[in-house]
Every structure is written in structure tokens, then in C-alpha cells.
Simulated scan of single mutants.
Amino acid sequence: MNTPQPSLGDQQEMSFIDHLEVLRWHIIRAAIAVVVFTLAAFLAKDFLFHDLILGPSRADFWTYRMFNQVGEWLGAPGLRMDRPTFDLQNRQMSGQLTMHISTSFVVGLSLAFPYTFWEIWRFIKPGLYPHERANSRGAVFFVSVLFVLGLLFGYFIAAPLSINFLASYQLDPTIENQIDLQSYISTLTTMSLSCALVFELPMIVFFLAKAGLVTPEIMRVYRKHAIVVILILAAIITPPDVTAQIIVTIPVILLYELSITIARVVGRNNTARLNAQLAENNHVA
């Protein structure tokens, strides 16, 4: 099943059909990884749902205990987070089975993301020039690390904050919160995956800077606009609580500042390479 990777020279001779055949095997291997992780998640039902998915619905969840301890240390009772007051319910005959399958797939897709991206990168890499391959070294590692960090941030910080607030919000004390299972899992997975994608900002800026579409000067000029957009996004994905919005906003702003540094380094390297090429051309001439 492992098809040999053609060199750059070989790829120049490859037809469109040959490229599709190579791409097909990369997609097949990535799909197999997703299926394997999905089956593993499906079989680990007790851990997947009792410990992982339903963790933020219990009082002993790590995030709630951490916020309570920090609130005690700082003498800030506003940081305290009590157990969300709601009951989960399934209202469809096949609801639990359907959620078991769909949630297992989402978890399998998330776990297989690093390998899937590596397969995509293996298809793209042979078509790059030597200096592009050298400048892109470690792309798979950093994309995977940022994805995992974003996923953990979403699961342990953003999602619990939203779940805790939304489940505790009441129009009237006589109204009980009986949350549908699908709604709860959708909130948890959406928050976690959204943060995982947002944390890819530095790598997105890296590739855009390599293509000459983004410069550090542009990012500095629009820094204030970016901060406003970040605040709006934080307000959308978090409850209308200032503390929660600040907790979510700070890492994203730091990622933006890191992206400016990355764009500056990429621009400096591009300029040095162009100067070296000009000097070599002048020397030859």
C-alpha cells in the first residue's frame, strides 16, 4: 500500500492521472487512520463518555476545581465555578446510539489529524523547490502541536466556561434546565474544535507570508482591527462574562503577536534569499 514518493524531477514528468493516483493512496491511508481511531474511540465507550465527554458536566471536573482553588488563593470569589445545574436527556429512540457513532467519529478525526496532515504534506512536499522544503521543515510538527494545544484549551477552558454559564443561566427559578444530549455534545465539540482551528493562526500566517500575501507591516497596521475581531469572536464562543472573555482572548492575542514575529522572520529570509540570487546572477553576468 505504501506507494513510493516521486522526486521533483519525476513529478515534472507525471501526468494528471498519475498525480491523482498518488493523491488517492494518501487519502486512503489517512482515511484508514481515521477509521482505526474511530473504532478505538467507539470501543472505549466508558472512558469516552463518562470521563471525557461528560467530564465538564460534573463538579469534580479539573477546570472547576482549578478555578475554585485559584479563586481561594487570590481571594476572588468571582472566579469560583460551581457544578452546572442541569440534567442530560435523550429524547430519541436511537439518539444514544447515533451520538455514540458520531462522537466516536469526531474523536477519531481529531486523533488522526496529525497523521492526516502528514499524508497531505507528503503529497505536497515533493512538488516544492529545495529552498521551500528547507524553509517548511517542521511544518507537520508545529501544525500538530498547535492543533493539540488548541483542542486542550477548548476542552479544558473555553467549553467548560460556556457550559457552566449556559447551564446555570435561568429566566426564572421555576424553569429547570433539561439539556438534550445532542445539544450538550454539540456545544462541547464545537468549542473544542473551534479553538483547535484558531490556534493554527501562526502556521496560517507562516504560509501566507511565504507566499508574499502577508507582511508584518500589514499585521501591525491592522493589529487594532484584529484585536476587535478577536474580542468579538471571544464574545461569540464564550458566555457574556468578562472573566471568561479575557481568559479566551489573551491566548489568541498572544498567537497574533507570535504570528507577527513569524511573518517578520519569513520576510527577512525571503529578502536574504532574493539578495543572494541577485548577487549570484550579477556574478555570473
Score class of each variant (00 low, 15 high):
Pro4Phe: 08
Asp10Cys: 06
Asp18Phe: 06
His19Ser: 11
His26Thr: 03
Ala30Trp: 05
Ala30Leu: 06
Ile32Asp: 03
Ile32Arg: 00
Val35Leu: 15
Ala41Tyr: 05
Ala41Trp: 03
Phe42Met: 14
Phe47Asn: 10
His50Gln: 14
Leu54Pro: 01
Gly55Ser: 09
Arg58Ala: 07
Met66Val: 13
Gln69Val: 04
Trp73Gly: 04
Gly75Ala: 08
Arg80Cys: 02
Arg80Glu: 11
Arg83Leu: 05
Pro84Trp: 06
Phe86Thr: 04
Gln89Glu: 08
Asn90His: 11
Arg91Lys: 10
Ser94Thr: 12
Ser94Val: 07
Ser94His: 11
Ser102Val: 13
Val106Met: 13
Glu119His: 06
Ile120Ala: 15
Arg122Ile: 00
Pro130Arg: 04
Arg133Ser: 05
Asn135Lys: 14
Phe141Thr: 14
Leu152Tyr: 05
Phe153Tyr: 10
Gly154Leu: 13
Tyr155Met: 09
Ala158Asn: 09
Ala159Pro: 01
Leu161Cys: 09
Ser162Tyr: 14
Asp172Arg: 14
Ile175Ser: 11
Asn177Tyr: 02
Asn177Val: 06
Asp180His: 09
Gln182Arg: 12
Ile185Asp: 05
Ser186Tyr: 09
Thr190Pro: 02
Met191Pro: 00
Ser194Glu: 03
Cys195Glu: 02
Leu197Asp: 02
Leu197Ile: 15
Leu197Glu: 03
Leu201Asn: 06
Met203Lys: 05
Ile204Asn: 03
Val205Thr: 13
Phe206Asp: 00
Lys210Ala: 02
Ala211Asn: 13
Glu217Val: 03
Arg220Ala: 09
Arg220Glu: 10
Tyr222Leu: 10
Arg223Lys: 13
Arg223Thr: 09
Ile227Arg: 00
Ile230Arg: 02
Ile232Phe: 13
Ala235Pro: 08
Pro239Leu: 01
Pro240Met: 09
Pro240Gly: 07
Asp241Glu: 14
Val242Ser: 13
Gln245Val: 03
Ile253Asp: 00
Ile253His: 07
Tyr256Glu: 00
Thr261Ser: 14
Val265Tyr: 08
Gly267Tyr: 03
Gly267Cys: 04
Arg268Tyr: 07
Asn269Tyr: 03
Asn269Ala: 08
Arg273Gln: 12
Asn282Tyr: 07
Asn282Pro: 00
